[in-house]
């Protein structure tokens, strides 16, 4: 499925399965690393991957900075809760150097994995991703569920926007109120009902065409030399990293 255009980014020319396996290896190695050199290498590799995938700069930064409240809580409390040499004192709480180190480590690991995910898997079309998962040995029914869900997402988003517009036309404004929560509940309940009716029609139509619940993956692309080279390069990097960390 990978286009053979020499001008398209390196990552796009790799087989989808190569990308997923490489991503899994990268994520495991990044999470397992515990030295400054390992963290630096992980971050550098993630940035390199992002460049090779030519991710859009602004959108990617927004995703990375869009830390959820969860992450913020962990990163802010960690310096104060890890025992160690006090670094600074804020409002009577002392932050330890060890804690700060732990917080920075988490931030680097989390961002490196997200960056690599966006570069290697996020740049895949979701349907291609589903096929690749299937060809990597994910259960057939799971892949069918994945592909159907991906297919319906666009349809449902449009339906959601339509219903939301209808609410706006009736001067509905979200606020911190029971009314808002109930209205959204009704909106999603309505979406569930209409969507299930749609799925019944789709299923009937598919059965008419002989669908038995099985998907046929007729893409028989094979990993090429580029995939081999990429795999060897990554394996070498991981072995080197292990040697450095052990030293």
């Amino acid at each position: 499925m990978a286009p053979d255009n020499a001008r398209c980014p390196l990552v796009a020319r790799l087989d989808p399965r190569t990308r997923l396996l490489s991503l899994a290896a990268f994520a495991l190695a990044t999470v397992a690393t515990h030295t400054a050199s390992g963290l630096g290498a992980a971050l550098a590799a993630a940035v390199l991957l992002a460049l090779c995938a030519s991710l859009p700069l602004r959108a990617t930064l927004v995703r990375l900075l869009g830390l959820e409240g969860f992450m913020a809580v962990v990163l802010v409390t960690l310096p104060f809760t890890t025992p160690g040499a006090p670094l600074v004192e804020i409002l009577g709480f002392s932050a330890s150097a060890e804690g700060l180190r732990a917080a920075v480590t988490i931030a680097i690991k989390a961002n490196a994995v997200v960056l690599a995910t966006l570069a290697l898997a996020g740049s895949l079309e979701t349907v291609v991703l589903g096929h690749a998962l299937g060809r990597l040995g994910c259960p057939e029914r799971f892949v069918a569920l994945f592909l159907f869900t991906v297919r319906y997402l666009g349809v449902l988003e449009a339906e959601y926007r339509r219903l939301r517009l209808a609410m706006r036309a009736r001067a509905f404004r979200p606020a911190t109120s029971f009314h808002t929560w109930r209205s959204f509940g009704h909106l999603i309940g309505m979406l569930m009902v209409t969507s299930i009716e749609r799925s019944e029609r789709i299923h009937a139509a598919m059965r008419c065409r002989g669908f038995t619940g099985r998907f046929h993956f007729d893409d028989d692309t094979r990993p090429g030399r580029l995939d081999l080279g990429f795999g060897v390069a990554q394996a070498t990097a991981l072995v080197l990293l292990t040697v450095v960390e052990r030293a």
Binding site: F148, E157, M192, S195, R198, H203, R214
Partner: peptide, 18 residues
């Protein structure tokens, strides 16, 4: 069961959007 896959996928798409 295979015949319920489209319905479950539809609902999981609803939940994803919601």
């Amino acid at each position: 069961p295979p015949e319920r896959v489209p319905a479950v996928a539809m609902l999981s798409a609803v939940f994803f959007v919601a």
